[in-house]
Simulated assay, not measured.
Amino acid sequence: MTVLEVKNLNVAFHTESGRLEALKQVSFSVPANRSVGVVGESGCGKSTLINAILGLLADNGEITSGEIIFEGDQDLARLGPTAMRGLRGQSIATVFQDPMGALNPVLSVGRQMRDIQYRSGLSKRDKDARSVAMLRKVRIPDPESRLTQFPHEFSGGMKQRIAIAMALMMEPALLIADEPTTALDATLEVATIELLKDLQRDIGCSVLFISHHLGVIAELCDEMIVMYAGEVVESGTTREIFHDARHPYTQKLLACDPARLSQRVARLPTIAGTLPDLRRRPSGCVFQPRCDRADAQCLTTPPNAPIGGSHIAHCWHADVSLGAMSA
């Protein structure tokens, strides 16, 4: 079963300087009980993708074409605001990267966790009992006494775990995690990843995990998609892409991962050039202005080249492998 299927999604923003194509022909799926990672540098369209799925695009943004099919029969791209509010928090939950932005500083944690359950029809006592049980699941010590405390009384890691507990309170079918480990140190990052894996297994939800951190994607996700300038340039299982990346952008992205450096260097590797102006997309392959393998053929739209299994690269030169890459 597929929980979420995005088909040929196009999103545009209307700006004073012209129409900006933020997402172009984005397609991927999130199977039941699986974790799918979305990776790419800043400006590649990750946040726009989340907002399109959640129906939270800015007023000047619109889905111009495509479908976002949830649980097989609901097209989120066509649902009105009232119907979307009925899904958010109940069937689709989100964990954001800044827990202080997600938690209300003037309300107790218990009050906020009760408010999340407003559709449940339970009594205040039963809501508090469920809140305590959820805090215990995310490894908050002495959860009964914590309900009366306020966000500022918790550490950053504990606040993030509380945000995860609130997102999973109603046992959603899909959890969207928007870089939830970015504000955490390395030790807390590892603990949060393990927690998400355990909770996904216990609750049985699917996870769409957004990150620029390749190590987190490798540890948590079963499948991944690589985005560049609002397009999916490569997709497949995490193992397929980490061990045999075929798109030049993916290869360069992996080469920039500090964890892959075998010795200390004065300057970290980077990808030469900058993202294109999405009001004036380059013709053909969107990555060709920065690609050292680009040729005349790359001035035309590249195909989705099958590599093997579920692995696909949107590139004319997808047959070129840089050899095995250890995850």
Rank of each mutant, 00 (worst) to 15 (best):
L147P: 12
S145C: 01
Q149P: 04
P180Y: 05
A173N: 14
I176E: 09
M169Q: 12
A173L: 11
L175P: 14
V190I: 15
R146C: 12
D178N: 07
G156I: 03
L188G: 01
A177C: 11
T181K: 02
E171F: 01
E179C: 06
L188T: 05
K159D: 08
E171V: 00
A163H: 04
L174S: 13
H152Y: 15
R161Q: 04
M169C: 11
E179K: 00
F150L: 09
S145D: 11
G156L: 06
F150W: 13
M158A: 08
D178Q: 12
L147Y: 14
L175M: 12
A183N: 09
L174D: 14
H152G: 04
R161L: 06
T192C: 10
L147K: 00
A177E: 11
R161F: 13
P172N: 11
M158R: 05
T182C: 02
L174T: 14
Q160W: 09
A183G: 08
T187K: 02
A191L: 08
D185V: 02
A167E: 11
L184M: 08
D185K: 03
L174N: 13
A165I: 11
G157C: 04
Q149L: 05
T148K: 13
L168F: 13
A163E: 09
M170W: 00
P180W: 01
L188K: 01
E144A: 07
V190E: 03
A186M: 13
E144M: 09
L175S: 09
D185T: 09
E144S: 06
Q160A: 07
P180I: 01
A163P: 05
R161A: 09
G156T: 03
I176W: 08
D185W: 10
E189M: 01
P151V: 12
E144L: 03
A177S: 12
M169A: 15
H152T: 05
E171H: 12
I176S: 13
A165R: 07
L184S: 04
M169H: 05
T192K: 00
A183C: 04
P180E: 02
A177V: 00
A183E: 02
P151H: 09
E189R: 01
L174V: 14
T187E: 07
F154I: 09
D185C: 05
Q160P: 04
R161G: 04
L174I: 15
A167L: 07
L175Q: 11
S145L: 06
Q149I: 00
I176F: 15
V190P: 10
L147H: 12
F150S: 06
E171R: 15
E189C: 03
S145K: 07
M166G: 01
A167F: 12
A167V: 07
A186P: 09
T148F: 04
K159Q: 15
P151E: 10
T148E: 13
A165L: 13
A173P: 07
A167I: 05
A177N: 11
A186K: 02
M170H: 03
A173D: 14
M158S: 05
T182M: 03
Q149G: 05
D185R: 01
R146M: 10
P151Q: 11
M166D: 02
L184R: 00
F150N: 04
T192G: 00
E171N: 14
